[in-house]
Design a protein around this nucleic acid. Structure first.
Lengths: 249, 249
DNA sequence: ATCTGTGAAGTGCTTCACAGCT
DNA sequence: AGCTGTGAAGCACTTCACAGAT
């Protein structure tokens, strides 16, 4: 089960050989942060900031400055020692590394509450991710435009996705439907999936899945509430007050 | 700036001293997976499965079995060598560690597309996370019930959250409003925040923030599209076909 | 005979700290 | 004098592989 998509539509600026090795080597964690830096930097551009130091940028992005510099070093050396980084230069290099010079068509499957919300973002968060197809099983929804795009029936995923060159599929269906939907997306040649359904998807190696799992997020927070409550109880026993002051040393 | 909440309402089953040290020591990454195991196990219970091996459970959860066993070992030794784990026992231990024996009131701030979707989940993903308060700046929305709960004005966050003992705040506002909303939640004593706004929130150390950032997720996927496209181009140059076979060895 | 629980080895990410450029 | 870029050290998570329980 592999991609059926040809290799003919490479519209991205081709990477230099040096960049190529780098792209392979960037830690996943760093990629996520690059996206954050990019957003912060875009804000800077709007404010007319032209130059920024690693210290300032790292503060704004909520990381420490060594990490920021290391992250930026993965994509090359575009700073000036003693000065800092040119904001626009940085923006364009990060955009290139993240593949944002290309448009990525998005299909949303499952037009319930969440699907509606996603479709109505219109051009998905941050531009460059146009939603070009919507799917649902509900016959009553088929043909109805949501966020300007008419809903197609789930049966047609394969043809419609191929036609519209969808490169990212978003699964917003109820859990039981998710795997089947995923399989269809994959057989339509979609190699990147963003999954909102609380299900562990099985996919071939050449497909990248990212998961957004609200239940997991809530439960992680719950864990921290519990840990904190417990530490507090523990500290009280040991004579430490709620605000961290020792009451009974 | 610290919690203003008293320490009197600890309704959680208190952890044994041994568990206490463990809770402190569980890696964050393991906590996230425990939540996944819990969901898979709940499904097992519904199917009437009573016993499961690390191999089976790890498959269903999409991790390898050594990792699963190590994760479970963080919460104690509840398996039987030569046999496997008792599903119900495991469920109840994971629930206890994740603090799911307590209810966690949730407030959603920002009742736009996403806020609506979230409010309409009713009892948030997976039970145990009742949404008890909604907030927005829009006067026209105030008083209107969404998912059964009337919307309050954002001005009233502090009082309403304190009143309803909200322990988790969900921020679904536009980016510019997020930090101010966050500050209000914090001063209402909320120590856990789930942030959907594409903004890096500044919070005191005693507050836990989890971020769900669609733009970042999309951009990570975009990065992988780019990397793959580039590898393919690269491989073609080196005489390797699209399906991985060497054409020109 | 089988499957868990876990030290120990391995891997990858983060932080340090400073050489080197402007 | 200031700030980047980066080897090297440190830390955390993952995987291995096997002793030990049933």
């Amino acid at each position: 089960m592999a991609s059926q998509r040809g290799e003919g539509e490479l519209t991205t600026t081709p990477l230099e050989p040096a960049d190529r090795e780098r792209a392979r080597a960037i830690p996943e964690a760093a990629v996520a942060r690059l996206a954050v830096y990019l957003r912060v930097l875009s804000g800077m551009v709007d404010q007319g900031v032209t130059t920024i130091s690693s210290e300032e940028l790292s503060q704004a992005a909520g990381v420490n400055s060594a990490k920021l510099r290391k992250d930026l070093s993965y994509i090359g050396s575009y700073g000036t020692r003693g000065v800092g980084y040119d904001v626009e230069v940085l923006v364009s290099h990060i955009e290139r590394i993240l593949g944002l010079t290309r448009k990525h068509s998005v299909a949303v499957v499952g037009i319930g509450n969440l699907g509606h919300a996603l479709a109505n973002y219109g051009g998905f968060p941050g531009r460059g991710f146009p939603v070009t197809a919507l799917f649902d099983v509900d016959e009553d929804l088929v043909g109805v435009p949501v966020g300007g795009i008419p809903v197609n029936h789930i049966e047609d995923i394969t043809t419609v996705c191929a036609e519209r060159e969808v490169s990212i599929g978003v699964i917003a269906t109820p859990p039981p439907a998710a795997q089947a939907v995923c399989d269809r997306l994959v057989s339509a040649g979609v190699q990147c999936i963003l999954n909102f359904a609380p299900v562990v998807l099985q996919v071939p190696d050449n497909v990248e899945v990212r998961k957004v799992d609200l239940a997991v997020e809530m439960q992680i927070l719950s864990f921290h509430v519990a840990r904190r409550a417990d530490e507090a109880a523990n500290d009280l026993v040991n004579g430490i007050g709620v605000d961290g002051m020792v009451i009974r040393p």
